[in-house]
Simulated scan of single mutants.
Amino acid sequence: MHELTETELAEILPGTWRIAATNFPMWLSGERLQPQFRYGLLSESPLTLSDEVAYVTTEGEEKQILGKDVLRRGEFVWRGKGLLSFARSRWHVSGADEQRTLLVIRFSKSIATPPGIDLVVREGSSYPHLRRVVASSTEELGLSPEDFASLGWLGV
Protein backbone atom coordinates (compact mmCIF):
# COMPACT_ATOMS: atom_id res chain seq x y z
CA MET A 1 0.00 0.00 0.00
CA HIS A 2 1.35 3.42 -0.86
CA GLU A 3 0.44 6.55 1.03
CA LEU A 4 -2.00 8.71 -0.90
CA THR A 5 -0.68 12.10 -1.98
CA GLU A 6 -2.41 15.41 -1.34
CA THR A 7 -3.44 15.50 -5.03
CA GLU A 8 -4.87 11.96 -4.88
CA LEU A 9 -6.79 12.78 -1.70
CA ALA A 10 -8.21 15.94 -3.35
CA GLU A 11 -9.45 13.78 -6.26
CA ILE A 12 -10.74 10.85 -4.20
CA LEU A 13 -12.38 12.27 -1.07
CA PRO A 14 -15.01 14.74 -2.37
CA GLY A 15 -18.40 13.07 -2.46
CA THR A 16 -20.55 10.92 -0.20
CA TRP A 17 -19.23 7.85 1.65
CA ARG A 18 -21.28 5.44 3.74
CA ILE A 19 -19.74 3.76 6.74
CA ALA A 20 -19.86 0.02 6.09
CA ALA A 21 -17.76 -1.18 9.03
CA THR A 22 -16.35 0.50 12.11
CA ASN A 23 -15.06 -0.01 15.61
CA PHE A 24 -16.45 3.30 16.92
CA PRO A 25 -18.92 2.90 19.80
CA MET A 26 -21.06 5.81 18.52
CA TRP A 27 -21.83 3.86 15.30
CA LEU A 28 -22.09 0.44 16.95
CA SER A 29 -24.50 1.46 19.75
CA GLY A 30 -27.56 1.16 17.49
CA GLU A 31 -28.64 4.74 18.32
CA ARG A 32 -27.22 6.34 15.16
CA LEU A 33 -28.14 4.61 11.90
CA GLN A 34 -27.02 4.89 8.27
CA PRO A 35 -23.91 6.98 9.02
CA GLN A 36 -22.19 8.68 6.14
CA PHE A 37 -19.59 11.32 5.40
CA ARG A 38 -19.91 14.02 2.75
CA TYR A 39 -16.72 15.81 1.77
CA GLY A 40 -16.52 18.91 -0.41
CA LEU A 41 -13.34 20.41 -1.82
CA LEU A 42 -12.80 23.92 -0.44
CA SER A 43 -9.11 24.39 -1.32
CA GLU A 44 -6.37 22.29 -2.92
CA SER A 45 -3.44 23.92 -1.12
CA PRO A 46 -3.49 23.32 1.69
CA LEU A 47 -6.06 20.60 1.03
CA THR A 48 -9.21 21.74 2.84
CA LEU A 49 -12.53 19.91 2.86
CA SER A 50 -16.01 20.69 4.11
CA ASP A 51 -17.08 17.76 6.28
CA GLU A 52 -20.63 16.67 7.02
CA VAL A 53 -21.35 13.57 9.07
CA ALA A 54 -24.98 12.55 8.63
CA TYR A 55 -26.99 9.84 10.35
CA VAL A 56 -30.55 8.91 11.27
CA THR A 57 -31.73 8.49 14.87
CA THR A 58 -33.78 5.48 15.93
CA GLU A 59 -36.81 7.85 15.85
CA GLY A 60 -36.13 8.56 12.15
CA GLU A 61 -34.75 12.09 12.66
CA GLU A 62 -31.88 13.10 10.36
CA LYS A 63 -28.90 14.64 12.18
CA GLN A 64 -25.71 16.30 10.96
CA ILE A 65 -22.33 17.16 12.42
CA LEU A 66 -20.61 19.88 10.40
CA GLY A 67 -16.93 20.69 10.28
CA LYS A 68 -13.91 21.46 8.17
CA ASP A 69 -10.79 19.36 7.54
CA VAL A 70 -7.34 20.77 6.77
CA LEU A 71 -4.49 18.46 5.71
CA ARG A 72 -1.39 19.04 7.83
CA ARG A 73 1.69 16.81 7.66
CA GLY A 74 -0.15 13.82 6.23
CA GLU A 75 -3.25 13.93 8.42
CA PHE A 76 -6.45 15.92 8.46
CA VAL A 77 -7.29 18.14 11.39
CA TRP A 78 -11.06 18.35 11.78
CA ARG A 79 -12.66 21.31 13.51
CA GLY A 80 -16.36 21.42 14.25
CA LYS A 81 -18.70 24.25 13.34
CA GLY A 82 -21.29 26.05 15.45
CA LEU A 83 -21.65 24.58 18.95
CA LEU A 84 -18.83 22.15 18.11
CA SER A 85 -16.35 24.85 17.10
CA PHE A 86 -14.23 23.97 20.15
CA ALA A 87 -14.00 20.31 19.09
CA ARG A 88 -11.05 18.95 17.12
CA SER A 89 -9.94 15.55 15.92
CA ARG A 90 -7.29 14.09 13.63
CA TRP A 91 -7.70 11.47 10.92
CA HIS A 92 -6.01 10.02 7.87
CA VAL A 93 -6.75 7.60 5.06
CA SER A 94 -4.70 4.48 5.81
CA GLY A 95 -5.65 2.55 2.69
CA ALA A 96 -7.80 2.34 -0.42
CA ASP A 97 -8.80 -0.30 -2.92
CA GLU A 98 -7.64 -0.10 -6.54
CA GLN A 99 -10.84 1.64 -7.68
CA ARG A 100 -10.58 4.18 -4.84
CA THR A 101 -14.21 3.49 -3.88
CA LEU A 102 -13.37 1.71 -0.60
CA LEU A 103 -11.28 3.57 2.00
CA VAL A 104 -10.07 2.92 5.51
CA ILE A 105 -10.05 6.04 7.68
CA ARG A 106 -8.19 6.03 10.99
CA PHE A 107 -9.06 8.50 13.71
CA SER A 108 -6.75 9.49 16.55
CA LYS A 109 -8.02 9.64 20.10
CA SER A 110 -9.70 12.96 20.89
CA ILE A 111 -11.28 14.49 23.96
CA ALA A 112 -14.66 13.06 22.92
CA THR A 113 -13.76 9.83 21.11
CA PRO A 114 -11.45 6.82 21.35
CA PRO A 115 -9.08 6.05 18.47
CA GLY A 116 -10.88 4.13 15.77
CA ILE A 117 -11.37 2.91 12.24
CA ASP A 118 -14.16 3.51 9.73
CA LEU A 119 -14.31 1.50 6.53
CA VAL A 120 -16.21 3.66 4.03
CA VAL A 121 -17.68 2.93 0.60
CA ARG A 122 -18.33 5.61 -2.01
CA GLU A 123 -22.03 6.21 -2.63
CA GLY A 124 -23.14 4.32 -5.71
CA SER A 125 -20.43 1.65 -5.41
CA SER A 126 -21.45 -1.95 -4.94
CA TYR A 127 -19.59 -4.56 -2.94
CA PRO A 128 -21.87 -7.61 -2.68
CA HIS A 129 -19.25 -9.55 -0.67
CA LEU A 130 -17.66 -6.64 1.18
CA ARG A 131 -16.32 -8.62 4.16
CA ARG A 132 -14.63 -11.07 1.83
CA VAL A 133 -13.17 -8.23 -0.27
CA VAL A 134 -11.80 -6.51 2.83
CA ALA A 135 -10.51 -9.77 4.36
CA SER A 136 -8.51 -10.48 1.20
CA SER A 137 -7.22 -6.88 0.91
CA THR A 138 -6.19 -6.05 4.48
CA GLU A 139 -2.62 -5.08 3.55
CA GLU A 140 -3.76 -2.87 0.67
CA LEU A 141 -6.28 -1.22 3.00
CA GLY A 142 -3.78 -0.71 5.81
CA LEU A 143 -5.55 -3.08 8.21
CA SER A 144 -3.92 -5.56 10.56
CA PRO A 145 -5.71 -8.84 11.38
CA GLU A 146 -6.55 -7.28 14.78
CA ASP A 147 -8.02 -4.21 13.06
CA PHE A 148 -10.18 -6.43 10.83
CA ALA A 149 -11.37 -8.47 13.82
CA SER A 150 -12.33 -5.29 15.71
CA LEU A 151 -14.76 -4.10 13.02
CA GLY A 152 -18.52 -4.21 13.41
CA TRP A 153 -20.36 -4.41 10.09
CA LEU A 154 -23.27 -2.00 9.56
CA GLY A 155 -26.02 -3.57 7.50
CA VAL A 156 -23.55 -5.55 5.43
Rank of each mutant, 00 (worst) to 15 (best):
S50D: 14
W27D: 00
I12G: 02
R73V: 08
W78P: 01
F37D: 07
V104E: 00
E3V: 15
L4I: 06
Q34A: 15
W153R: 02
R72V: 14
A10K: 03
A96Q: 05
W17D: 02
W78S: 02
Q36T: 09
H129F: 15
Q36K: 13
S89K: 03
E3G: 10
S108K: 09
S150Q: 02
V121Y: 02
E140F: 09
F107Y: 09
L119E: 00
E123P: 06
G82T: 06
Y127S: 04
L42Q: 10
N23A: 03
S136A: 15
E140D: 12
T138G: 06
H129R: 14
H2V: 13
T16F: 10
G40W: 11
S50R: 08
W153K: 02
P46Y: 05
R73Q: 14
H2P: 12
L47A: 01
S125M: 14
G74N: 11
I19M: 04
R90F: 04
K68P: 06
E98G: 07
G155S: 08
F37R: 01
G40Q: 13
Q99N: 14
E11W: 09
L84G: 03
Q64F: 15
S45A: 13
D97R: 03
K109G: 03
G67F: 03
G142C: 10
A87S: 11
I117C: 00
L42C: 07
S108R: 06
I65Q: 10
Y55A: 09
L154F: 07
G155F: 02
I65F: 14
I111P: 01
P128C: 06
T58Q: 13
P114M: 04
V77L: 09
A112D: 10
F76Y: 04
V53S: 08
L130G: 03
D97F: 02
P128K: 04
D51C: 08
T138P: 07
L83C: 04
N23L: 03
A54C: 11
G30F: 12
A135Y: 12
E11F: 09
I111V: 13
Q99H: 12
S94W: 00
S125I: 13
L151G: 00
R122I: 07
T22F: 02
V104M: 00
E59C: 11
L130E: 03
L130Q: 01
P25N: 12
V134L: 07
P25Q: 11
Y55G: 03
T113H: 08
R32M: 13
V77A: 03
S125Y: 13
R79D: 05
E8V: 08
P46V: 02
V93G: 00
S110W: 02
R122L: 11
R88K: 09
A54Y: 05
E139T: 14
L154W: 05
V93W: 00
R38H: 13
Q99W: 09
H92T: 07
A54N: 09
G74T: 10
G30M: 12
S136E: 15
M1W: 11
E59S: 15
L42K: 11
R106L: 05
S50N: 12
S85N: 10
G60P: 08
R132V: 14
E59H: 14
L154K: 05
L130N: 04
R122S: 10
E3M: 15
G30T: 13
G142W: 01
Y39Q: 04
G155R: 07
L143I: 07
P128E: 07
K68T: 15
F76H: 00
D51P: 07
H92A: 08
S144I: 11
S137C: 14
G152D: 06
R88D: 00
